[in-house]
Amino acid sequence: MIPYKYIFKKSIAFLVVLYAAITLNFLLPRLIPGDPAEVVYLAIIKEGGGSVNPVYIHQLEAEYGISNAPMYTQYLQYLEDLLHGNLGISIAFFPEPVSSILSEALPWTLYLVITSIVISFFIGNRLGRYAGINRNTFRDLLIDLFSMFMASFPAFVLAFIMLDIFSVDSGIFPIGGAYSSSVNIGFNMPFIVSAIYHSFLPILTIILTSIGGWVLGMRNNIIPNVNSDFISFSENLGLQKEQINRIAYRNAILPNLTGFSMSIGLSVSGVIIEESIFSYPGVGLYMITAIDSLDYPLLQGIFLMVIIAVLVGNLVVDILYGFFDPRIRQEGE
């Protein structure tokens, strides 16, 4: 049974948020005092020297509100450019359009985010389940303290320490990049192995820093479930300990599943920071360069694309959730 109405509702919400993000992206540079657009404009002229195409300058003026056209014309122009996939031209990597930079960088970021969030979710929930079932034991205390410490240590410092120990000093893992230069890009075995090898350290670091929330959340969800009436009932029925734990676990995982879609945004924040540290050629690496050189077109492109990716991720998770939890299905009908 497909929960059509629920999917419809979620899709509408998705479109509304998407529209809000696009509009925010348009408004922000125009709301900040001191006109950052001027800075972009001057930088482009300086970078391109005399060879800047006048058509391009005209387009830039329209994009950054330097033109004296009324706001709504600028807005319509902005939307039209967006529909054509035109995000402007980067300043730091001058003649290259933002959209081509992003199409190179975004897949790597998505790969990191999806892999790390899924692994972290599964391991975190299992650890939390173990701690919650064995609560008030020494093992529980160890897991709790580990999770709390991991959640509280600054993520980027951990990344630097990992980089220093495992890449720089011992050379076990590569210092940067997403794959070694000796393999052909494509769907072949050496490339996949090389990509996994290069991404191992960043993914491990992201998992370590994001796992604490899942562990502690799961532990606190499962404890009331273990103490609840339906568990005593199952015990009296003579079910095995493992079966009972599974029942409690299934009930306790629901809040974490809801949290899953919400945590995508947070994980993306983390991944962006880690990428710049591990010189991983994702969005984060370009972002640091973009901030340093005040590359507004690139920054705005990153902002928009990452938000669209996060929104799509949210929509997919929400729809899947509708299949998992019958209560939500009913609510939508």
Binding site: A21, I32, G34, V40, G265, L266, F303
Partner: peptide, 20 residues
């Protein structure tokens, strides 16, 4: 507000401020 990654907003605001 939950969905938008905070780091992105910080980076956008911060760089606009740096620009001026």
């Amino acid at each position: 507000f939950l969905i938008i990654p905070g780091v992105l907003l910080i980076m956008l605001f911060g760089s606009y401020f740096l620009g001026i």
